[in-house]
């Protein structure tokens, strides 16, 4: 798997984790460029549909990051994240998706170093796992 560059989608909440990523950049921390960031207002906005869609369209891993419990800008948003995540993982396992491919993290605006560490570690994990194999429906002329 030497040549494999993982594609990872990261949903970062505007108020904490995105700011944390920003801080990592401003602090000139080095971390892999495999994570494509999608800024969302709150981690609670990350409908499992987003995660499934990312996987179905070529992502090898997905990161959902938000404020620490108790710190969500919208008070309750990340509790919804916290509650959905384990159920989503149970379901993804039934679809053959390894638990390590979808990760949830709490990263505050002050935690630039943690952000960089998470991205580094997560990229390495996905590199070890290899590409995510999707179930593909190719086209009407390629049924079988």
């Amino acid at each position: 798997m030497v040549d494999f560059e993982p594609k990872i989608i990261g949903f970062l909440c505007n108020w904490c984790s995105y700011a944390g990523a920003d801080l990592a950049g401003v602090s000139r921390l080095q971390y892999p460029a495999n994570l494509r960031v999608v800024r969302v207002m709150c981690s609670g906005r990350v409908d499992p549909t987003f995660v499934f869609k990312a996987l179905s369209q070529g992502a090898d891993g997905v990161l959902i990051a938000g404020c620490h419990p108790g710190d969500c800008h919208y008070t309750e948003g990340n509790y919804n994240t916290l509650k959905r995540y384990p159920l989503m993982m149970q379901m993804l396992e039934q679809f053959g998706v390894e638990r390590e491919r979808v990760r949830m993290e709490w990263i505050s605006a002050a935690e630039g170093t943690i952000y960089a560490d998470v991205v580094r570690e997560f990229t390495e994990t996905i590199r070890q796992l290899g590409p995510y194999k999707r179930r593909l429906v190719k086209g009407r002329d390629q049924v079988g």
């Binding site: 996987l55 179905s56 039934q94 679809f95 998706v97 179930r135 429906v137």
Partner: peptide, 20 residues
Amino acid sequence: AGTFYRFGMSTSLLKGAVKQ
């Protein structure tokens, strides 16, 4: 998975399981 996609696995986003 079986309960929430009881009638719609073929057209769901993930379509089914793949051995990784």
